[in-house]
Structure formats: C-alpha cells, structure tokens
Simulated scan of single mutants.
Amino acid sequence: MNAVPAEPTPPVWRQRAIERSTRAATLRAEQRIERFLEAAQELIAAKGTTDFTVQEVVERSKQSLRSFYQHFDGKHELLLALFEDALGRSADEIRTATAPKKKPLERLRVAVHMLYEQSMPRPGRQSPLFTDFAMQLLGTHPEQVATAHVPLLDLFTELVEEAVESGDAHADKPRRAASLVMQTAMFTAQTPGVPSGSTSTQVSADEVWEFCRGGVTGRT
C-alpha cells in the first residue's frame, strides 16, 4: 500500500502573515468589545440603573448594531459580561488587600469587610457589583451567575482553607463554608436593615464579620 504523502509545510513567511492577521483581528474584536462595555458602564453611571437599551449602547460606543450582535446575543449577555468583569476586579482587589495580613483569620476578616462594602447599594448610582441586576439574573440565568462568581469563590475558599490549616477555623467543606460566608456578606449588604421600632438599622460590616467568624470558628 502506498503511503499517503504528507501535507506540505506552509512557508515560514506565510505562517507569520497568518499569525499577524489573526492577532490583528483578535485585537480589533477586543477593542470593539471594550468600547461596548465602556459605553454600558457610562450609561449605568449616568442613569444609576441598568435600564438602558442596546441602541443607546451602540450610539454611545459609536459602533454599529451589527457589530454589537457579532459579539453579544443581547443586552443580558452584555450585562453578564459587565457583572463577570466586576466580580473579577472585586476578587483582584480583595486578594491584593488581604495579602499583607499575616494571620489567616485576619485575611478572611478583611475579605468579608471589602465584599460587604462593595455589595452595598449606592444612592444615585449603580452598585459596583450590579446587585439589582444580579438578583434578576439569579432567576433567569443561574448557571451563568454561578460561573461569574467563581473567581471570588476560589479566593474565599483559599482564605477559609488557610484558616483551617492554621487551626483558627473548622470547616469540613471549606468551599461550601466560603460560599455561605460570601452569600452572607453580599445579600446582607443589599437588605434595608433590621427593624428597630419604627425604623430599620443597617447591619454593619463588623456585625456581618462576627456572624461569619462564629460560623467558621465555632466561637462567638
């Protein structure tokens, strides 16, 4: 049986040309996506809400509607991208802030405080973590919301595991404990507060931390 001849290797110059073309196309796509994201962020800052249209994003970005739909299925996917980006930045900021702390439990305390502050609604503008949109997504796109939270969950899992290894915390399932700590901080920050007579008192970051600390250490 005759051997099948091997495919000729493309000349080196052709490979370089193809690679340059691919890099250029990728860079252009990334720049277009970034302009759409920036336009959406500007609209959120201006309106204090995610109540805007795709057309408004297109006009502010100075790009075409066709280009928008080449990169996003619709507004929900654009907002998911913003949400995921915000969570990624949050994880990076918390990691940077906790790194200098020597004690694992202190690192976890700083992380809880920061996540709580980042999740609080801000009068007149959108919360950094798009909390109102996040609540809507929980009902409509739960799997994508879970995926978006992975960087934060990975970080909090590391912090809980470090506290367990140091003997300062007890958690048979560190990732599950980390998830509960995160949910406590994020969702408590979004509530109007605890009823106290005729008014409501906002739960503080210190109170949230003490509650979480008791959960992971078994001590109050």
Rank of each mutant, 00 (worst) to 15 (best):
M1S: 13
A3I: 14
V4P: 01
P5R: 14
A6T: 14
T9Y: 05
R20E: 15
R20F: 14
S21D: 15
T22C: 10
T22P: 01
R23A: 14
A25N: 12
L27K: 12
L27I: 09
R32D: 07
R32I: 03
I33M: 07
F36A: 06
E38K: 12
Q41P: 00
L43S: 12
L43Q: 07
I44H: 08
A45I: 09
A46H: 06
A46V: 08
T50N: 08
T53M: 03
V54Q: 06
V54I: 14
V54M: 08
Q55G: 12
E56W: 11
E56S: 11
V57I: 14
V58E: 11
V58C: 11
R60N: 13
Q63W: 12
S64W: 13
L65E: 14
R66K: 11
Q70H: 11
F72Q: 09
D73F: 07
G74V: 07
H76S: 11
E77F: 05
L78M: 04
L80A: 13
L82P: 13
L82D: 14
F83L: 15
D85S: 03
L87S: 02
S90G: 15
I94T: 07
R95W: 02
T96Q: 15
T96L: 15
A97F: 08
T98P: 12
K101G: 05
K101R: 14
K102P: 00
K103I: 04
P104I: 02
E106L: 09
E106R: 09
A111K: 02
M114L: 15
Q118R: 10
Q118A: 11
S119V: 00
R122T: 10
G124S: 02
R125E: 08
R125M: 03
P128E: 01
L129D: 03
Q136A: 13
L138V: 00
L138E: 01
L138N: 02
P142H: 03
V145I: 05
A148L: 03
F156G: 03
E158L: 08
E158N: 10
L159E: 03
V164M: 04
V164W: 04
E165C: 00
S166G: 10
G167M: 06
D168H: 14
A169Y: 09
A169C: 13
K173E: 13
K173P: 00
P174K: 04
R175E: 10
A178R: 01
A178V: 00
L180R: 01
L180F: 06
Q183L: 07
Q183R: 10
T184A: 08
A185H: 04
A189P: 04
Q190A: 13
T191P: 00
G193P: 06
G197P: 09
S198A: 12
S200R: 08
V203R: 02
A205I: 08
G215P: 02
G215S: 06
T217Y: 05
T217R: 03
T217D: 07
G218A: 07
